[in-house]
Structures are given as C-alpha cells and as structure tokens.
C-alpha cells in the first residue's frame, strides 16, 4: 500500500470534509502516459506538504478548451456548464491545475457561465510552497549547476502574464537557468495550442515544435523544463526527432521538484 493518498471530492464530502483545494487533473494528466507522471509527481508533493486537497476523479470532464478554440462554442459551453455544476455542487472555491489550458479556461472563461473560483496554476502553487518554506530544496540536490532552459507556455505567459513563477521554481533547484532567445513575452509557441494538438499542422516548411526544440537545444541545456501537457508532448517529440532523447530530458516543474525532493 502506497503512502500517497488521492481523496476524491465524493469521498471527502461523504465523510463531511471539505478540502482546501481541488486539484484539477485535466485530460492529459488523466490519460496521457507521459503527463500522468506529472500528475503523480504533483500528488506526491501535495501529500508531502500536507495540503488538504481532493480530485474529482471520474466526475471530471474536459473543460472544453480545445472545442472552443476549434470554433465549437456549443460543445465548449455544454462542457463548461456541466463542469461548473459539478464544482458549484461541491461548493469549491480554490482550484489548482497543472494544465495552462484548463487554468485559462476555468479562470477566465468559466466566470461568464457562473463558475467563479480562485484558480492557480501549479507553477504558481509550487512557487508559493517554496516561498512558504514547505518545499525546501536544501543542498542543491541533483540539479545543482546543471543547465535548465524553460519553455514558456503561451497560455501561462502571454495569455495570463505568468512568466516569473515557473522561473522562481527552477531557481530554487539551484540549477543554472539558461534562457532561449525567444522567451517570456516573446516566447515561441510549441505548436499545439488553439486545438492544433488534435490535428496535423497545415502545410509549411517546418513543424513549429522542431523550430522550438532546435532553439531549446541550442542553449546547451540538458533539461527542457515545461509547465504544460501540450508543450511536454511537442518538446518531447522534437527532442526525439533530433535524436537527443539520450542527453536531453523534457521535464515538468512538478517532476523536477519531486525528483529533487527524492519523492
């Protein structure tokens, strides 16, 4: 039996408890093999710091983001209204998610449909834990002095002006943060946003993720840090395409923290 607990809202409610935060896992975090490991890393961190949390489990459904970006407003709103009913039914106030697309949708787009929550992306949440001393990465761990580059997620960065939190988390690892030429407000997309994740790219000279991966590799970093499931897929594919998967790893912030904590 594992030491890690993953309480669901249904369980908590039936035992009369209410968690401090809801961890919104997202579809990639639930189904994508690579991103499930990010979900697990984040759960380990939540367990370790002793935050009172719960997940929706099977009650969670797609926020509707890809449908809305692809133009299907009906489907988006059907999803949104159903999710809002679930969240409001549990009287939830604070939502944390490891997906910038879920984050953007719940934070910015659910209020118009009656869903008002404090929504926090896991990069900000991890930064808060570090600031509060709940995660202390003493001794510089395994990342000390190693080069890490951070790839800005468009839906965190330009869409929501979150540029510093992920970088603060990486700095806490005592790693050497090397920036790509196009970073922060000028960050170059991984190519998957706007529902591109779910179709082939239009005809062009190059794949967007290859262009971005080349830029990331040119920094000489051996870890490409990401904070988004789509960026994770695109950058991992890019690294594989460049046959660099032996030397260069694509990791989410939560994985890096968990690893450095020995979780």
């Amino acid at each position: 039996m594992s030491e890690y607990k993953v309480p669901t809202m249904a369980e908590m409610t039936s035992s009369g408890e209410s968690p401090e935060i809801l961890f919104w896992v997202g579809c990639a975090g639930s189904f994508d093999d690579r991103y499930k490991s990010v979900t697990r890393a984040f759960i380990k961190i939540l367990n370790k710091v002793g935050v009172s949390f719960a997940v929706l489990g099977e009650e969670e459904t797609c926020t509707g983001d890809p449908a809305r970006r692809a133009g299907n407003e009906f489907l988006f709103q059907m999803q949104a209204v159903a999710n809002i009913q679930t969240l409001n039914g549990y009287n939830l106030k604070k939502v944390v998610t490891a997906c910038p697309h879920c984050f953007n949708t719940i934070k910015n787009e659910y209020p118009a449909l009656g869903g008002n929550y404090e929504v926090i992306h896991h990069s900000t949440f991890l930064q808060q834990l570090i600031n509060e001393g709940k995660v202390s990465l003493k001794g510089g761990g395994s990342f000390k002095g190693k080069k890490i580059t951070y790839h800005d997620s468009c839906y965190l960065g330009r869409a929501n002006n979150i540029y510093e939190a992920p970088r603060k988390v990486l700095e806490a690892l005592d790693a050497e943060l090397v920036e790509m030429k196009r970073c922060r407000t000028k960050g170059f997309c991984c190519g998957a946003g706007g529902a591109q994740m779910f179709k082939d790219a239009e005809n062009g000279k190059k794949e967007v993720n290859i262009e971005r991966t080349e830029e990331a590799l040119s920094t000489g970093a051996n870890t490409i840090a990401v904070a988004c499931p789509f960026c994770m897929t695109m950058m991992s594919d890019g690294v594989k395409n460049k046959e660099k998967e032996g030397e260069v790893k694509v990791k989410d912030l939560a994985e890096l923290i968990a690893e450095s904590e020995g979780l």
């Binding site: 039996m1 594992s2 890690y4 993953v6 669901t8 896992v25 579809c27 975090g29 639930s30 189904f31 994508d32 499930k36 979900t39 697990r40 759960i43 997940v55 489990g57 099977e58 969670e60 459904t61 797609c62 890809p66 449908a67 999803q79 994740m197 779910f198």
Partner: peptide
C-alpha cells in the same frame, strides 16, 4: 468527455498506478 478516445471510466486510473509506487 475528453478530446481523446478513452473510456471515461478510465479517467481515474492514474491513481491506481500511483498506489503501486
């Protein structure tokens, strides 16, 4: 209820794998 074709009942399977850790 997900953009990929997975059974909705598998949505929480990731937690089982965690318990095996």
């Amino acid at each position: 209820f997900a953009p990929w074709k997975f059974a909705p009942t598998d949505r929480f399977k990731w937690a089982d794998e965690l318990k095996e850790d």
